[in-house]
Nucleic acid binder design. Structure first.
Lengths: 235, 235
DNA sequence: ATTTTTAAGTCTTATATAAGATATATAAGA
DNA sequence: TCTTATATATCTTATATAAGACTTAAAAAT
């Protein structure tokens, strides 16, 4: 049997998955939760502590505990690791290049845990920094989870994909795994990014997950690292 | 004034810096610490919880709380992010290419927080995986912190630098920041790694820190990512 | 009378302490 | 070898106090 606080954590997560509390909103106070789960405040606290450490919940002293949302200032570019090497702070801009539906390859189906050859939405876009192309993104998501996803919607949201997933489709992106490689720019990438063919570029392959480690998105980012770098911390 | 548990955390850290408890050894029990610091067990617990989350301490139920050490199985390759894309598990091998002392450049001095043009030890090595070269490492550390560091010592320790720092010099590597770029292999890198000049390779620039965010090492890794990738998690 | 400021009260999380039950690991003894 | 004792961290509950955020009521100023 799991410790009580783990069980409480699970029940809170279930409420989040079930949509009982929505992103940006506050959940009941610790004492209220303690009553409704019939445990002590300390146990609820420990459960919430862990969820806050996972950035699923956000505690604000004096105000309450809130469901994390991509519609918040500090959360906007949480998953963007590419940084200007000069400390520049220019805004990223977004341009949609392509939008189509296609059959998932076997590999992709496996990654997204969907049936072989089921439909995925495939999105191609370029992010520009300081008017210069910086990242060429290829994004694939299961069509079944994102019914009603259109190019217009992406343009309207200015490329904040995770905000759109959350607001328009009720899907919370919580964490991701990335595989990084150095590759040579092919024809297409070279043209779009405005560099010579075979220029070394950074290939960042991402799988994004929602609650319970359910994969919701596959993404390949091709980045120029002439004046930028991918920043990480090792702990 | 900081909360009590933060003050306790600081005092525990001071004991670690001061060498009162050594890596691999256990620290006093929570109750003993509570008595000696004149606070409750819960307060000590919260301090230790945070230090354990930072991987500075390691809790083992029924045994005690231990000072993290690089001389431990699961901690051996904790900072190696490069993984075989095929799931291979071959052992890495290590070959020392060069060892010399030199004057620190201005940039390096700033990073390592040492006087301009003070002496640093510069180490060049290559890591091979499955008999094939995989990573070309260039490592620079302040000579003053590592008196008595010799090529023999590195060879003897088979390239486990952080184990050597800990065991032979009493310096604990705790965390690091990395900047990743895609670059073209130059003459030297191409030759050592056994690839054509201008092959795209991954450049991983690392600054490693000990207690209190004191920088102890600068490192540049040039990695082949034909069959390997750099793996990260985003939270 | 109206507005502004201040104070008090209330809700929240954060911090701190205490105490007991439980799980795990090791050592000592039968 | 098996059992028991002991030490440890872990989990759970309970009770305070502190501190931040907000609301409301009262007081002061205009």
């Amino acid at each position: 049997m799991n410790p009580l606080y783990i069980q409480i954590k699970k029940r809170i997560t279930e409420s989040l998955v079930g949509g009982l509390w929505h992103p940006g909103q506050s959940i009941p106070s610790e004492i209220e939760l303690a009553h409704s789960y019939n445990v002590s405040q300390g146990t609820v606290r420990k459960a919430i502590d862990e969820l806050a450490a996972e950035k699923i919940l956000i505690r604000r002293q004096g105000k309450g505990t809130f469901v994390a949302s991509h519609n918040e200032e500090n959360n906007q570019l949480r998953f963007l690791r590419l940084t200007s090497s000069l400390g520049d702070k220019e805004k990223l801009n977004n341009k949609l290049l392509n939008f189509e539906k296609e059959k998932a390859s076997n590999g992709l189906a496996k990654i997204l845990n969907i049936n072989n050859a089921s439909t995925v939405v495939s999105i191609k876009r370029v992010l520009t920094f300081n008017q210069k192309p910086l990242i060429l993104d290829l994004i694939k998501v299961p069509a079944s989870s994102f019914r009603g996803l259109t190019p217009e919607k992406i343009i309207e949201k200015q490329g904040s994909m995770y905000r759109m997933y959350e607001t328009d489709f009720g899907i919370q992106m919580l964490h991701a795994k990335e595989k990084i490689r150095a590759v040579a720019a092919n024809n297409e990438a070279a043209e779009i990014l405005g560099v010579a063919i075979n220029t070394p570029i950074l290939s960042v392959e991402r799988v994004a997950y929602t609650y319970d480690n359910r994969a919701i998105e596959w993404r390949l980012g091709l980045c120029l690292t002439e004046n930028h770098h991918y920043a990480t911390e090792l702990e």
